[in-house]
């Protein structure tokens, strides 16, 4: 499959009075056409900022300080604002975490849905409204074509997220960024929404980047997974590799710290001790060192690069070879 998106050495810093927050600090990854890619990490690890950087939605005091984002053969970071507007919402669109706040409460759903259709696809009002009705039906809103005059508050959380998905997919984008699409929803609704995103992604050939802190969410849906910690990607591989054979202490720790329904109950959970580092004053060497059980002297001085540990599986850790050997024995 061809590469749709290639992110190279992307760095986004926030210049605050307290100091420079290195929210995203040199990440490189790619996304193939039609693929579902997971981006996993805890709050403050830079996963949302990295997505907003792709869309060029970073606001002051934040700035892209380095890197390139090749999308469809163009570098999005050097595009004119005007050209970027044609891509945003059309070729690349986004659904957000909070379906409650990301819809405009004073405009009807129909108005919000038809805006992009008229703007990007040049439809007239009637055609756009017909299409909007079809879209609402497509995302599974009962009698969706008759609900265009309704306002967001008349929909439940799950239904609002469906409206968001309809809006994001309205112009047949090549890529959809889903930033924590299910975090604000209940478990039974979460399952519905993820099934929907996966099904529509396949039907429309849209590549999906799912950003989440929930390891369970991506296990079922993602083809490949990137794990982020303190602004960097620290491990990458197919879901099967990441979950079955994790090679970074952070990924191992994350997997061990969640109780699992399919396994016998453990007497005690195995947490990762300590706290994530302050992004203003990152320690020298590996950012995870202070919380790491496997740290060696080298970790304090040299930042481990992302190196291949097996085919298509990379990890940024000085001792990842030993971790693999340990896991096998």
């Amino acid at each position: 499959m061809a590469k749709l998106l290639e992110v190279k050495d992307l760095a986004t810093y926030f210049f605050t009075p307290e100091g420079v927050v290195k929210a995203v600090d040199g990440i490189t990854y790619d996304l193939e056409e039609g693929e579902i890619l997971g981006l996993v990490g805890e709050s403050g690890c830079g996963k949302s900022v990295s997505a907003l950087s792709l869309m060029r939605l970073i606001q002051n005091p934040g700035r892209n300080v380095a890197g390139s984002v090749m999308f469809n053969g163009q570098d999005l970071l050097t595009l004119e604002d005007e050209d970027m507007r044609h891509i945003r919402g059309k070729d690349m669109s986004m659904i957000f975490q909070e379906p409650m706040t990301s819809l405009n409460p004073v405009l009807t759903i129909g108005r919000q849905l038809t805006e992009a259709l008229q703007l990007h696809l040049g439809m007239d009002k009637e055609a756009a409204e017909n299409r909007a009705g079809e879209l609402l039906l497509m995302v599974g809103i009962p009698e969706g074509d008759r609900r265009l005059r309704d306002y967001p508050h008349q929909f439940s959380g799950g239904m609002r997220q469906r409206v968001m998905i309809a809006m994001a997919l309205s112009c047949n984008p090549k890529m959809l960024i889903a930033d924590e699409p299910t975090t604000a929803l209940d478990v039974t609704i979460q399952a519905q929404i993820l099934e929907l995103v996966q099904r529509l992604g396949r039907e429309l050939g849209t590549a999906v980047l799912i950003i989440t802190h929930n390891l369970g969410v991506v296990a079922r849906y993602a083809d490949r997974v990137n794990v982020m910690y303190a602004g960097k990607i620290i491990e990458r591989g197919t879901s099967r590799e990441i979950y079955g054979n994790p090679r970074h202490p952070y990924t191992i720790g994350l997997l061990a710290s969640v109780p699992r329904l399919d396994e016998p109950r453990k007497e005690q959970l195995d947490p990762i001790e300590g706290l994530p580092p302050d992004l203003i004053a990152l320690p020298a060497g590996c950012a995870f060192r202070a919380r790491c059980r496997f740290a060696i002297d080298k970790c304090a001085t040299e930042i481990p690069p992302l190196v291949e540990v097996s085919e298509g599986h990379t990890a940024a850790c000085w001792v990842s070879d030993q971790l693999g050997a340990q896991a096998r024995s």
């Binding site: 478990v187 039974t188 979460q190 296990a219 079922r220 099967r240 699992r260 329904l261 399919d262």
Partner: peptide, 27 residues
Amino acid sequence: KALISAVPIPDPLVEAQRERIVLTGDV
């Protein structure tokens, strides 16, 4: 049953074999 089956499990191999009861509609 539906609630338990909706909880995602962080293991793609297990997930692939699980049967999932997806409830329709909202509360």
